Simulated assay, not measured.
Amino acid sequence: MLGRLSSVAQRAPRRWQASSQGIDYSCLHQLAPYIGKLKPLIARELLGQFTSPGDVVLDCFSGSGTIPLESVMLGRRTLAFDTNPYAITLTRAKLEAPPSLEAANEQLAQRLLASQRRSRYDQRTIPLWVRKFFHPKTLQSALRFADECIEKDDQFLLACLLSILHHQRPGFLSYPSSHLVPYLRDRKFPKEEFPEMYAERDLAPRLVAKLARAYKHGGSINRSKVLRVARIGVADLKLDYEVDAIITSPPYMNALDYVRDNRLRMWFLDRSTVDYSPEPTDRQMQSDAITSAFASNALKYLRKGGHCVLVVGETVLRKRIKTHPAERMLAQLTTEYPGLRVERVIRDEIPDIRRSRKTGAATKRELVLVLRKE
């Protein structure tokens, strides 16, 4: 199959290219931004084709939690793991959302009141690269609220806070900056011309508005379908039972900078986060090690006859390096785990609106590798 994946791949349904607006999806899918996340429609169709209600579905690279959330809403039982703390916060937030807007607002009122009683931070202990994004009073409120959520293990409200952390719109907390990747836009919006964008921003009304958006559409979550969500790497994965399907989008070399692009949100989760740190998949050897761990420590839990569905980039051209992660990953998996059989390959063109970078960097086409355990 190596070198021939594109030629044998069937084209994805045209509806995969369409907008998700007007489709019956939970607004929890849009709880907070995350680069390179899977469309709910694709997750729903893959789950519908390769699993049945009541099945146990494993996503060991859960990212923003799209597959676990759709899995639960379709009546499947879900297991979700990732090593990125922001990914786990998002996944847990979606699966642990309060049952109603009223319950969420009541929970918010409690957290806000408790956070106001917390000690103030010494500004000098906060890194300069973090301080430059916020009015000092706004930063104090946001930090104390984050600490309260972390102490109470309230991942839902913590994710809501992270979702409004930075943007130039009035409903967000930072000085004018980009939404997805944190960088200041003070040249486009100089302080002397836009003083209102540099004023203190009250946390409470912005969180109330965020909750209203989160509960605008979508049913409540059946938490009994959530078997486990944890910050665990695939090399350390341990389960006590088989799973019916593995559906996931594994990281591959040199594609996206999850740590750098989420560094401000991740700093609120872990204060040891620095302004920039390398990705675990920056080098081919590291990427291959993740694939090898998946082959030896995830596939063994897949029941015989069960499907392993992987969403992987076809070609990545970035940082002057060209790679073919889908072909490399498939070759490595079938070599290290000969019991896998290729059942189907689906080619999905990624439109500009779904790319994390307007230049089209990283990958313009994904391949869905449908494998079956014989």
Rank of each mutant, 00 (worst) to 15 (best):
M1G: 09
S7F: 04
S7L: 08
R14G: 12
W16E: 02
L28K: 08
H29N: 11
Y34S: 12
A43R: 01
R44Y: 11
L46K: 02
G48Q: 02
Q49T: 12
Q49H: 07
F50W: 05
S52M: 09
S52Y: 05
S52V: 07
S52C: 10
P53D: 00
C60Y: 00
C60I: 07
S62W: 08
G65F: 13
P68G: 02
E70Q: 10
I88F: 15
T91G: 15
R92T: 13
A97E: 05
S100E: 06
Q107V: 13
A109F: 00
A109H: 09
Q110S: 15
L112V: 12
L113R: 15
R117V: 09
K137D: 15
K137W: 06
D147T: 06
D153S: 14
I164H: 04
L165N: 04
R169L: 03
L180E: 13
Y183C: 15
R185P: 01
E196I: 09
A204Y: 04
A204R: 03
L207E: 02
A209T: 09
K210D: 08
L211V: 10
H217G: 11
I221K: 08
K225C: 15
R231L: 11
A235T: 04
D236W: 08
K238V: 04
E242W: 08
V243F: 12
T248L: 11
P250A: 01
Y252L: 07
L256A: 12
V259P: 03
V259E: 08
D261R: 08
D261V: 06
L264R: 10
L269C: 13
D270G: 04
D275F: 11
P280T: 05
Q286W: 07
S287A: 11
A289G: 06
A289P: 10
Y301G: 02
C308P: 11
V316D: 05
H324F: 13
R328K: 12
T334S: 03
E336F: 09
Y337T: 04
G339T: 02
L340F: 02
R341M: 08
R344A: 03
V345A: 03
A361V: 11
K373L: 00
